[in-house]
Amino acid sequence: MSRKKHMHEEQEADVDMTPMLDIVFILLIFFIVTTSFIKEEGLLINRPKAKNNPSQVNSPTVVVQIAETGQLKFNGKLVDIERLSARIESFLSENQTNSAVVIADPEASHEMVVNVIDRIKPFQQLTISIGK
């Protein structure tokens, strides 16, 4: 009789995994069906449209280069930060332009770049761009 009792205990200890797998698959299907996929957008950038104005294509541009050491070049000539506004003013009196490009060395200080942009800002006819 002890043999029958021992075999009977082994059969009871066996767990059927089929119903649990069925429930897991039903839950998986439920979550797949009910999930809503939303397309996330990043920054919205309003890029300006290109203008086909041939007179502006060849017009001279105000170019300010900032070296790693903090030296400034205005259209290829060395200039001091205090004299930059005067140079821009004299350049604009001689030339018709509406664009200024600031080209900073990657190792240049951010403070210097901001100072240069602040010197260009008072000239409201200029559109300031950052170049490489």
Rank of each mutant, 00 (worst) to 15 (best):
L84S: 03
A13I: 08
S129Q: 12
F91P: 01
F30A: 14
V57Y: 14
V102R: 01
A100P: 00
T61Y: 04
S129H: 13
G131E: 08
S85C: 02
H110D: 09
V64H: 00
E68T: 15
A108V: 12
E111Q: 12
N52C: 04
R87K: 11
F91G: 01
S36C: 11
V113R: 05
F123C: 05
V79Q: 01
S129K: 14
P60M: 04
T34A: 08
N46L: 14
I88D: 01
A100T: 02
M112E: 03
V62E: 00
N115G: 02
E41Y: 14
Q11E: 08
D16V: 07
L21R: 11
V116I: 13
H110S: 09
E10H: 13
R87C: 02
I120D: 02
Q11V: 13
V33H: 02
L72F: 01
G42M: 04
K39D: 07
F91M: 04
D105C: 05
I103R: 07
F74Q: 02
Q124H: 11
N46P: 05
I23K: 10
V62H: 01
R47L: 15
E41T: 15
S59W: 03
E68V: 14
S59L: 08
L28A: 12
M7W: 12
S85G: 10
F37K: 07
R47A: 12
Q11N: 07
A67V: 04
V62M: 02
I117D: 00
S93W: 11
I23P: 01
K121R: 11
T35Q: 09
D80W: 10
Q65G: 05
F37D: 05
E41W: 14
F31E: 05
F91R: 02
V15I: 15
I130G: 12
K5N: 12
I81V: 13
I103S: 06
I128V: 15
Q71C: 04
I130E: 09
V63M: 15
I66R: 01
I45W: 06
E68C: 09
I26E: 08
R47H: 10
L126D: 01
A13N: 09
H8G: 06
E94W: 08
V64A: 00
Q56C: 11
T61E: 10
P122I: 07
I23H: 09
E89H: 08
K132N: 13
L44K: 13
V57C: 06
D16Q: 05
T97C: 04
F31M: 12
T127E: 10
S85P: 01
I45A: 07
A104N: 02
N58S: 11
I117R: 07
D14W: 15
V63K: 08
I103P: 00
K132F: 15
V79A: 05
E9R: 08
K51I: 15
E41G: 11
I81F: 05
V79R: 00
Q96L: 13
P106F: 07
G76T: 09
N75A: 06
E10M: 14
L78T: 13
S109K: 04
A104R: 02
K77P: 02
I88H: 00
I103E: 06
I128N: 02
T34N: 08
I117A: 06
A67M: 12
I130S: 10
P60D: 04
V64P: 00
Q11F: 12
I23E: 10
S55W: 13
F91W: 03
E82H: 09
P106S: 06
I81M: 10
F30S: 08
Q65P: 01
K39Q: 11
K4A: 14
A108S: 15
